[in-house]
Structure formats: structure tokens, C-alpha cells
Nucleic acid binder design. Structure first.
Lengths: 332, 332
DNA sequence: TTGTACGCGTTATCAC
DNA sequence: GTGATAACGCGTACAA
């Protein structure tokens, strides 16, 4: 691949002049610039990132940690993020972390060893030692968290207000006459969406409805788990008249069960999901759910990280986005 | 951060000796080695990847190009690939390419500028100029293609035998008495799965069934497109008694339509998908489909690329995996 | 407005 | 076994 010296020779100038054109700083005569640009075009010149990085200590690489790529949320989110990073000259390392075990910290070390410019992290973990490590790293390499569980950790964080969203959804169910509202939450060790559950609890309390422990189930985020949770709920001596799930995927499992058992939705049982997956429009019946402002969150995440990288490395940015209720046919 | 010179000074040796210890090649007296190791430990020394890369032209990074992350196939595939690359000391850049436009070539240039060690590519494109460019790059930087469309392009390729898989599925439908088998293929400009279509054509020909042009629809890989295609097929004066789709996602759209119009599946119309998505088990009724050997393909892809990188850079490896029919309830 | 010269942290090639 | 030294491609004072 052509280097800056080749360009200089062909354009009949010195490499410093080429460098000035490439990095767009310093004065270059318009004519010279045009000529150099043309040669670069012809040779399809790209600056060597190693050499550049050695001088500037910047890699224009970002590390992104996902705990689980199978969740459609991440891919949706990443499609947007990748577009923006490319536009701004960055490329992303994608690391899939294992929620069990130490792989998160190891992946972070791998990334750091490659002198990445910043890190975006979706995580299951939140123990103090881990947070402390992140905070330390953040002093040199900006970290952006995308889980509400990091809200008060002294780290930058862009996420959706799952508590408020769930609160509003619960309220909607209550307004429609539901009084026995069950909730399928995530397993305790994966506390990513715990704040959603908080919204449910808070709304019941505010509405003076009693919280029935038998109506709260922990499941593992899969459709199958949603199915089983619904089974457990509906076979209970006092079955609920509405089921909320912390994710659409689990809500779809609930629908699978209810449909199979010929329950009438929403009259026998109402169902509320969370995420507004594309697939949620096509369930039978179409799923009422809580929509995150996907695009805004994705755009804000990457733009914020790049801002932190390029401007104020040690700033802490925290922003929460409101969710929106999508009332479809699983609610009255 | 400490560099090799600091270590050398503190250990009272030259940086060449430190380098020999770090990269573990060349002879160093055990005593000297121990002393150097200790100093490195104390200063928490990490080699600078920029300088190292500049010298060796190796980044231990791999670039992966996906045309569309929303297809669950990719995420499934990548989860496996990422695990293996980490084990072998690599990290992956993930680029989402835009099927329309030149973004593929630009992303490849971006990757090359970062001196990635190898490229894995899933692509929509296959024009001669593009292939030629890839072939040229492949002389220096190993490229592995994961689409059957690259089979005869002189590039390394690991993929599933979509032609044979579709041939077998078509045969199965014919054996069950279906005679009017429609096929929903991809748009012509996105020829990724054309070989699947070939299998359909070949089987019809081998079975002396007439190919009805009105029963062949090009659609755009979404669920909605599958729906519309089914609508077009079923409203035709001579509707089919079976519909095959090039992907499960489109087949699911077909089911959406047929269910809505209260067709009886599979008696009125049989349906066959392709991909064996996790979701295909949960459609109503559960979708008969063609399963790719996911894990094997994923493992083989990354291991092959790393082999090409580390051993025989210019070798060409081609391997095709057989598919397996999953007969569920959308077929007789 | 442009060119010269040097250094960034490594590894590789010598010579000792 | 070890050390000096030359690259690798780029950015940037400083000189012209």
C-alpha cells in the first residue's frame, strides 16, 4: 500500500506537505493541495494507522462489549452506531462477553492493549471492584455505559428510563381495569433490566394495589422461559388478569402459552412487553409494548463517546431517554 | 506508560535483549531473563501495539464485513467466531456494509489501512471488478468468503450447500404430492442465496415439472416482503400448493399471510423455509425448514482464516457443508 | 507556502 | 548471549 512518501514523490512535493493536506492543518497552496489530492485519489492512499498512532497515541478504534448478541436490540443499535463511527473515522471492535466468569475484564484488557480510544459497554455485572476498575480506566480512556444499572456509578451512561416506562405501562393496565398484574422479571444475577421491575413495583404501590409475590417470576430472557413463566402464573390458584414481561421476547413466550391454552387476549389476560422489537408487530395478537427510542439512544451513545474522546476525556455524561407506550391488541 | 527502553535501563541491559524476552525468541541467559521479567512485572509493561505493528505489520485484528446484522444468522455465527478468535489472540472489527453503494470497498480500505491480518466477508456483491479487487488483496491479506456466490471466484470460501439443500427440500415437497411449488427468491442484485434457487429449478427439471414463471417471486428478505409475495402468489388465478422461501424470515411472512386468510397449512398450502432460525420452531404452525450446520461453519471459518494468516497466506481453501431438512408442521 | 530533520517504540540484522 | 543500529510511516518543530 502506498505511503506518504510515495504520494510526495509522485506529486513532486515533500512528505510534510502531503501530511499537511492529509491532516488538513497548516497552509498549503490550493494548487498544490489539488495536485496532492489527485495523486492520493489515484493511489487510493490511506494513512498507516500504526505510524499515525505511534505519533498521536490515537487508534480511531472503539471497543464495544456486548453480553449477548442474540438480543435483537444490540444488532439494531449497532447498525446505527457503526454507520456513525465510520462517518467519523472510527472502526469498532466487537467483543461478546460471557456473563458468567471474568471474561469482561479480560476483554477490556485486550482492548486496552490495542490502545483503543474509547469503550462502550453493555454489561451484566456491577460489583464494586468492577466499577472501580472501570472508573480507573475512564481516567485515561473514556468509557460509556449503556445500562441503567450504571446510573449512579460515576461513569458516563446513556440509556432509557425503564422505570418510568414500566410505571406508565402498569398504570395503563390499571386504568383498563386490571387488578391482578403479574410481572416476569430477569434473573437476579443479570440485573440489566431491574429498573423496569422497579417501575412496576412503584406503580402498584402508588395505586394502593397489593403486591402478590406469587405473581412475580424471575426468568431467563428467552421466549421459552416466558412460556414457562406464563404456565406457572396461570396454573396458580389465583391467576393474574394481566402479565407484564421485562422483554418482548419473554412476552412472546407468554403469548405462545396463552394462545396454546386458548385464553382470550386481552379479555382473560392482558399482556405487556418491553422493547418494541420488529417482531412484536406480528405476534398474535399484536403485542402491546414499551418502545425505547432506539435511534436516539444509539446516535447519542456513539456521538457522546466520540465527543469524550476528542474533547473532554474525563467528563461524565449521563442521559436518560423516555420510553413510549405502543398500545396494540394484547391490552384492553 | 513504561516502554522497552525504560525496562532495559532498569534491568541494566539493552533493549534488544528485552525485546528477545518479550517476543520469546532468540537466546537469553536464564538469569538475565528473570531479571528483565521482574522489572517488566514491576512496571506493568505492555508492548506498544502501534510500534510493534509498524515493525511487524501484524495487528492481531481481523475485519469482518456483514451486509445486514439484522439477520439472526450473523449474530449466531459471530458469537462462535468471537470466542475462537479471542482464544487465539485476535480481536474483530465488525463492519456493517450497505448493500447499495460502494461502502463495501471503502470499508475494506479502512480495514486495510489498519493493517488487519485477515478479512472475512459476507457480501451482496459479486461483480467482476469487486472480485478482482479481492483477489488482489488476497495476495497480501488473506480473505475468506462465506457466501456460496464466491465459490468459483478463486478466493477462499466456507459455506453451506444451499443448492443441494433446496434440491432435497423441493424433492420432499414433490414426494408429498405437491405439484405447484412456488419459490420466493432474493432480489437479483443481492445474489447471496441464488444457489438456493438453483436447487429448486434443478429439482423441478429433474422431476419433469413445468416451471411456472408466475410462481417465482423476487423479494427483499424481510418478513413483510414474504407477506406480500404470498399475497401475490395466492391471488393469482392459479395459486400454488406449496411455497418455498429463500429464508425463514420470508417464510414467516408467508405464514403471516396464510394464517390471516385462514388457509389451512399444510393441506391448502405447504411452506418451506431456509435457515432454521430459533424463531422457526415457534411459528404457527412450526416451520419446516432447511438447517445450516451453524457451529461447524462458524468454527471452520475463523480457524481457516487464522491458519491462512499464520501459515500459508496465499493458499485457497474451499469447503461446502451439507444442510439438513427439519420437517415440522408446514409440510405434509 | 514549502522542505529538512528528527523522534515515536518496536523488531530485525548485524557484529561483537 | 548480548548490544548497536537501521528501518517501519507518520507528525511536527524549525528553517528556508
Amino acid at each position: 500500500m502506498a505511503n506518504i512518501k510515495d504520494i510526495a514523490k509522485l506529486a513532486g512535493v515533500s512528505k510534510s506537505t502531503v501530511s499537511r493536506v492529509v491532516s488538513n492543518n497548516g497552509f498549503v497552496k490550493e494548487e498544490t493541495r489539488a495536485k496532492i489530492m489527485k495523486v492520493m485519489e489515484n493511489l487510493n492512499y490511506r494513512p498507516n494507522m500504526f505510524a499515525k498512532g505511534m505519533r498521536t497515541n490515537r487508534s480511531f478504534s472503539i471497543g464495544i462489549l456486548f453480553p449477548d448478541l442474540k438480543n435483537p436490540f444490540f444488532t439494531e443499535w449497532y447498525s446505527i452506531v457503526d454507520t456513525i463511527s465510520r462517518e467519523r473515522g472510527y472502526l469498532n471492535y466487537i467483543c461478546v462477553t460471557d456473563p458468567k466468569g471474568e471474561s469482561e475484564e479480560m476483554r477490556i484488557d485486550d482492548l486496552l492493549a490495542r490502545s483503543i480510544d474509547g469503550i462502550i459497554i453493555f454489561s451484566y455485572r456491577k460489583d464494586d471492584a468492577f466499577i472501580e476498575k472501570l472508573r480507573k480506566i475512564n481516567k485515561l480512556t473514556p468509557i460509556l455505559c449503556c445500562d441503567s444499572m450504571f446510573l449512579d456509578s460515576g461513569l458516563s451512561c446513556i440509556c432509557a428510563d425503564g422505570e418510568k416506562g414500566t410505571y406508565n405501562a402498569t398504570q395503563k393496565l390499571i386504568e383498563s381495569g386490571n387488578r391482578n398484574i403479574a410481572y416476569i422479571k430477569g434473573k437476579d444475577e443479570f440485573s440489566v433490566v431491574d429498573n423496569r421491575f422497579e417501575g412496576y413495583l412503584k406503580c402498584l404501590a402508588d395505586s394502593s394495589l397489593k403486591i402478590n409475590d406469587a405473581h412475580i417470576i424471575s426468568a431467563n430472557f428467552t421466549r421459552g422461559c416466558g412460556y414457562k413463566a406464563a404456565e406457572e402464573l396461570m396454573e396458580h390458584s389465583n391467576p393474574p388478569d394481566a402479565i407484564m414481561a421485562a422483554t418482548d421476547l419473554m412476552a412472546m413466550g407468554v403469548l405462545d402459552y396463552l394462545n396454546k391454552k386458548n385464553y382470550h387476549i386481552p379479555d382473560d389476560v392482558a399482556v405487556f412487553g418491553y422493547d418494541n422489537l420488529v417482531a412484536a408487530k406480528n405476534t398474535s395478537p399484536p403485542l402491546s409494548t414499551i418502545a425505547l427510542p432506539f435511534n436516539e439512544i444509539a446516535e447519542k451513545s456513539i456521538n457522546t463517546l466520540i465527543k469524550l474522546i476528542e474533547e473532554d476525556k474525563t467528563d461524565i455524561v449521563v442521559e436518560m431517554f423516555d420510553c413510549e407506550l405502543k398500545m396494540r391488541n394484547t391490552t384492553k
